[in-house]
Amino acid sequence: MSTVILTEAAAYEVKSMMEQNGMPDGYLKISVKGGGCTGLSYGMSAEEAPAENDEILEYYGVKVLVDKTDAPILNGTTIDFKQSLMGGGFAIENPNAIASCGCGSSFRTKDVAGTPENC
């Protein structure tokens, strides 16, 4: 079982977004895919139901899905939502990431390099 932590601020924002999009009972799926300058990038999507290979976690009333193949890469990752004068956004802190690109949108781990693209 993996541990992806959704902070209270992130959960509040996800709940609000799900309700605005007519999915109050939906799931937040956290995923990893190849790409970006460093090789891997995060994905976040709203899903109506878990897939067969998904682990289900729950934080502050938000159901979170993590595909079992992505779980080792995401284990220990914290997802927060931060507000600033420039607006708000999700912040992802992954203790498994050993390198990330300058813009912060891609990363790689010790064991998984992914498939880097030109930025």
Rank of each mutant, 00 (worst) to 15 (best):
N96R: 07
S16Y: 08
S84M: 02
M18V: 03
S45H: 00
V14L: 10
G43M: 09
E58C: 08
E48I: 06
I73G: 09
P72T: 10
V112D: 06
F107W: 05
I98R: 01
N94F: 05
I5P: 00
I30M: 13
D67P: 01
L57T: 03
K68M: 13
L85K: 13
I30D: 03
L6D: 08
S84G: 15
A99H: 05
G35E: 03
G88V: 10
F90C: 09
Y12M: 10
K33P: 00
K29T: 10
N96A: 12
L74C: 10
V66S: 06
S16A: 14
N53F: 01
K82G: 11
M1R: 10
S2N: 13
N75W: 05
S105H: 06
D70M: 04
G61L: 02
K68C: 11
L65S: 02
V112I: 14
G114S: 08
Q83A: 14
G26C: 08
M18S: 11
I73R: 07
G61K: 01
Y42N: 05
V4H: 01
A10Q: 02
A113E: 11
P50W: 03
I30F: 13
D70Y: 02
A11P: 04
G89F: 12
N53M: 08
F81M: 09
P24V: 04
I79Y: 03
T7K: 02
N53Y: 05
S100W: 01
C119H: 04
P24N: 07
Q20N: 14
G89V: 12
G61Q: 03
G76S: 03
Y60D: 15
P24M: 03
K15T: 09
A10S: 05
I30R: 02
I5E: 13
A11L: 08
N75F: 06
S105Y: 07
S84L: 08
D25Y: 12
M1C: 05
L28H: 08
R108G: 00
S100C: 09
T115N: 14
M18D: 00
D54V: 01
L85I: 12
T78R: 11
D25R: 12
M44T: 01
D54E: 06
T78D: 07
S84E: 07
S41Q: 13
S45N: 12
A51I: 03
P50Y: 04
T109F: 10
S41E: 12
G35P: 11
L40F: 03
N118A: 15
S84T: 15
K63N: 07
D54N: 10
C119V: 04
T69I: 06
A71H: 08
V4Q: 04
I79T: 09
V32M: 04
M17P: 00
C101I: 02
S2M: 13
A99D: 13
S41M: 15
P50T: 10
S105W: 00
Y59V: 05
V64L: 13
T69Y: 05
S41K: 13
N21T: 15
E55G: 10
S16F: 08
K15F: 00
V4Y: 06
S100T: 11
E47C: 12
E47H: 11
E48D: 14
G87Q: 09
A49P: 00
Y27E: 02
G89H: 13
E58L: 04
A91F: 13
N21R: 15
E93K: 14
E58R: 07
S105L: 12
E19N: 12
A97G: 07
G43W: 05
V14C: 11
E55R: 04
T115V: 12
K33I: 14
E93S: 15
T77W: 02
P24F: 09
I79V: 15
L57V: 01
K29I: 04
